[in-house]
Structures are given as C-alpha cells and as structure tokens.
Design a protein around this nucleic acid. Structure first.
Lengths: 204, 204
DNA sequence: TAGATTGTTAATCGATTAACAATC
DNA sequence: TAGATTGTTAATCGATTAACAATC
C-alpha cells in the first residue's frame, strides 16, 4: 500500500521529469531530482522503488523511461472524459483552461442551473436538469464540482447516482462519498488560510 | 514549532467551527469535531493544545470563543490587501470571487501584459509595466500569481523586488523564494494527477 | 457528587533518512 | 578496473493515538 505522502509527491516527480525531457536531458540521478524538489535523494529512491526499479546502479534514471513509467503510475496514459458542474467563475475558468488536453483530460460538457450562454470555449453548457440524462447517455470519467457550497452536496449525490466514480471538488465543503468513489478536493480558502497563517508567523 | 500537518488541519477546524457558529451551536467536544473531519479526538485536542487550552474539562469547547481563537491563529482577524497578476481564466475567476472579502482579503488590482479591459468586477486592470510603480505607491500584503508558467518566475522576482512578502501561486511551477518570503501554492494539475492516480488504483 | 471531557504524558505507529552491498 | 549510483535494509525521527489524571 502506497502512503498518502508518496502519492502527493508523484505529480511533482512527473512534472520535473517532463521538464527535463522537454529540455532534452537524457539521464538524471536521485540526487538531482531531490535537489530540484528540495527533498532527500533517499526519499526519491525510496518512493520510486515502491513502484519497481526504474533506475540503474551507477547510471541513474533514464528520463524518457521514467517519464513514461510515472505517467503510467499516475494513470496519465489514457484519455478521461470530464464534465464540469457549475458555470460560474471557477467553472468557466476550468472550461477555458487549455492545458487539460495535454494530459488527456477532455472537458465534454458544462452544467449550470442557469445556463446563460449555450457554449463556453466550444464546450456546450446544459441546464442542470439535463445532467441525469446526460450521464445515462455519455461516458463520464471525472466530474468537476464548481458550484456554490450549498449545492455541492446534492450535485455530488446526483453525480454518484448517475454512475460517476471520480469527483474533483472545488466547492468549500467536506463531501462524504461512499466506498468506491474517488474524491479529490481543491480547497482555495484552506490554502489561503495557510498562507495567512504563515504570513502572520513569519519571522521578518 | 508547529508542524506542517497541524497547520494544514487548522483551516478545516476553522471551517467546521464557523459552520457550527452559523448554525447557532454553542458548545462542541473534541469527539464531535473529530468525527466531522474524520480524524481522532486525540488529534483534535493535541492540535488545539499547541496554541493553548481553549477548552474546559467536562464541558468541551465554546464555539464562539474557539472561532475567534482560530481566526486569530490563522491571521484572519485583520484585513489583507491583495493584487492578482495575470488576468487570464484563473485571474479573472479569482477577481470575481466574492468570498474573499468575508475573510478580510481585498483584491485591489489586477495586472496583465495585455489588459484588454480596464476593469473586471469593479477591480482595475493595469498593464504589467505599472506593477513596479504600483508596489511603490500601495500596500500589498498578498500577491496572487495567476500567469502562465513561463512568466511566473519573473513575476515572482518582480513582486519580491517590490517588497511583497506573501505570494499565492497558481502557476504550475516550483518557485524558489528567499527566506522571509511566504509562498503557498495551489497546484490544480497536481491535484488532478492525484485524482487520476486514485481513480486508477480504485478497487471497484 | 457523578459524569463528562479536557490537557498532557507516554506508547505506538509510520514516514523519513542513513548506510551500504549490489552492480552498472 | 574504478567511480557512480541504485535498490533496499536498518536506524532515526516525528506524528498520531491511547491513556488517564485533572477538573469543570
């Protein structure tokens, strides 16, 4: 079983390795990875070793190979069909973000209680009433909750009832999901509170 | 010295306590807080004890008092002047988010290399060239980086040079900041990668 | 008083780091 | 071969949990 701490570091490894690959670098050592991420080389090796030995003694890690391995570990070797519920500030920002496609995440539709426009950035905006039917007719791997906090819970329920297994939640609530449902939160306010805590406790 | 793990839990305590206060609840036990956040009562008491004893044996915690204490600990008992650099999807979404004010975070200005409109949501959009001058003339407690990843580093440098001490970074890069500068990252792609990792490794 | 629940110490658990044999 | 660097075990460190005396 892989620990939370390890899982959270995987995307950072992946990001750094991708950067190296883009820069044409062919090999890298645990020491170099470690210093780029401000962690220890021991931890890098320990972490990667959880998934099998990708390196070679005396040589290090092959960047191209490691990139592919990490992508596979993270599940980035496939395409995900995504919908966004809530076409407010955040929903629209996410719909407009071009970067998702690079990683295989395709935003297929937006839903809102009050769909003021019919499409945003080429993505259709549907009325919330249509969500249930949409889920019956389309594959949805990931649903993004970008609603106000009051409706987040009922939206989550509707999504789960409709068969969605993975939820990416941007609403500032602690959602409870049943076993077998994957939930990942982005909590901007929590992050901002941590920033303010740190600002306050900074030794100047 | 308070550990990272504790600091990250503080906003969750605060959010829950605020919710109780809004609901008119007057007292709460560590057990109730714990079950709401899916942690142990021991941990709740241990965490809160780091900042002094806010509870009372045999009674629990007074919600109103705990709320005020947590707000003070998090530095939410004052007003912050904030600017946002980058008026793209995310920058605009943040500028439009009404909730910041409730916690005392005031967005005073936006900056963009190409300010296509003069104001968003009543917040002025300035040309990036004006950033330096703005920082000389105005108090800025927190600067948000909502640019593309390529410009994030140079923006951070400009902010730090201009005297900004706290940076809230939304760009997908590992920024390096000198001692005395507070940096907090929101990494959407990392969160999405974790979601995809968990989706892949879910036992269905 | 009896019951409840904190604050805090001690015990446990898990994660990080160090060390080094294996080996490219 | 000599040097470099991994994979992996063992040691250390820190965080979480359990326990309970203090006390409201």
């Amino acid at each position: 079983m892989i620990s939370e701490a390890v899982i959270k570091r995987l995307p950072r490894y992946y990001r750094f390795i991708k950067q190296l690959a883009d820069g044409g670098v062919e090999r890298v050592s645990s020491t170099k990875i470690a210093s780029a991420l401000s962690i220890t080389a021991s931890q890098v090796r320990q972490d990667l070793c959880n998934f099998g030995g990708f390196g070679q003694q005396g040589y290090g890690y092959d960047v191209g190979k490691l990139k592919i391995e990490l992508a596979a570990i993270l599940g980035l070797d496939k395409v995900y069909d995504m919908i966004i519920v809530g076409a407010g500030n955040i929903g629209r920002a996410l719909a407009g973000y071009k970067g998702f496609k690079d990683d295989g995440f395709y935003v297929r539709a937006l839903f809102d209680i009050d769909p003021r426009c019919s499409s945003i950035n080429g993505i259709k905006v549907y009325d919330m009433d249509f969500l249930k039917t949409y889920l019956q007719q389309n594959q949805v791997d990931i649903a993004v909750i970008a609603t106000q906090k009051d409706s987040a819970k009922s939206v989550a329920d509707a999504l789960i009832a409709g068969g969605v297994k993975s939820i990416w939640n941007f609403a500032p609530v602690e959602l409870e999901v049943p076993e077998g449902i994957t939930l990942e939160n982005i909590s901007m306010s929590e992050s901002l509170y941590v920033l303010s805590y740190r600002s306050k406790n900074r030794k100047n």
